[in-house]
Amino acid sequence: MARREEGGLDRDLADLPPDLRWREWLRRIEAVLFASSAPVARDHLARVVGQGVSVYLLIEDLAVDLEGRPYEVAQVGAGWMLRTRPAYAPAIRAAADVGGHALNLSEFDLAVLAAIAFHQPISRDGLKDIFGKEISRDLIGRLAERDLIGTGPREPRRGAPYTFVTTEAFLAAFGMESLRDLPDPEQLADAGLAGSLEAPDV
């Protein structure tokens, strides 16, 4: 007997032959990823397929299925999302209204975000030590509003100030699977980007 979950979804699809059943599960995974603006975790994807079905194998098959398409399935943190391949970014910018999705961050904003990414969890005092000046609450607020950073554990000292960490939205925005994909600081220096970590004169 088919298992029906909330909303009448038949997860097992026992009435279908195995190849069509797998194809339907694959399409369900693709549909969920397509509809989501954030990475979707394995546990959530497992809600639309049969019990004991490997979400990982379905994701692998979906990645193969999307070869040659302008978008791909990408792992971001503990979940997956559909992402346009980088080669098509110029076409999208030229024809689509993506203004609401643009980060619109200054070079210094990006430098602070990079410092948080490399040194997390880090407090405002830690950022001050890096940049030689106080980092404004407005800048921290802008990064938090875009969900690029969140609060981390409090520092174990008097006053227990909050620390900041990057989020899955940060990983998605910069096309990374995990923080292991951050460039090596020496590579940044070799590319001449280390200077961007200096605070601008105000």
Rank of each mutant, 00 (worst) to 15 (best):
A74E: 13
A91V: 14
L62R: 11
L110V: 10
A172P: 10
L193W: 12
T151W: 12
V32T: 02
V55F: 00
G175T: 07
F108A: 11
L113F: 04
H44Y: 12
S106D: 08
A102W: 08
L62D: 15
D19H: 13
V32W: 02
Q75G: 11
E107V: 15
E67P: 05
L171K: 01
R154W: 02
A96W: 15
F118I: 07
T163A: 03
L103N: 09
V202Q: 15
L179V: 05
W80H: 12
L113N: 07
F131Q: 06
G7E: 12
E186D: 14
G100W: 06
G159W: 09
L182C: 08
A91R: 12
G132F: 12
G141W: 08
V73N: 09
P161D: 07
A95Q: 10
D190C: 05
G8H: 09
R21N: 04
L182W: 09
V48F: 12
P185M: 01
D129H: 09
A31R: 13
A144L: 13
G50C: 03
A14M: 06
R93Q: 12
P86W: 01
A111L: 07
F170M: 09
R93K: 11
A87I: 06
L179W: 04
E198F: 04
D109T: 01
F131A: 06
E134Q: 10
A172I: 06
P185C: 10
Y162I: 01
V165H: 07
D15R: 15
L20Y: 13
G175F: 05
D181I: 05
A78V: 15
P18R: 14
A89L: 13
A96M: 13
M81W: 03
R146F: 04
V32M: 03
G152K: 02
E177H: 14
A94G: 14
L127N: 10
E24G: 03
E60Y: 15
D125P: 07
T151L: 07
G52R: 13
S178M: 06
V48Y: 14
A41P: 15
N104T: 00
G79M: 11
I149T: 07
D184W: 07
L26S: 03
G68S: 10
A63G: 13
L16F: 10
R42G: 04
A169C: 02
G50Q: 10
R85L: 10
I92L: 15
L139N: 02
W80V: 11
E72G: 11
A189C: 09
Y71E: 12
E24F: 09
R85M: 02
G50F: 05
S36W: 05
L16D: 07
P161S: 10
V48G: 03
I92Y: 06
L110S: 11
H44R: 13
P200E: 00
L82E: 02
E186K: 14
A160F: 15
Y71D: 05
L16W: 05
A95W: 13
S178W: 02
V40N: 06
V55S: 09
G192D: 06
D12W: 00
L143R: 00
I116C: 00
G195Y: 09
H119L: 10
G159V: 03
G7M: 05
R154P: 00
R47D: 10
L9F: 00
G141F: 03
F34M: 07
D190G: 05
V53T: 09
S123V: 00
F34P: 02
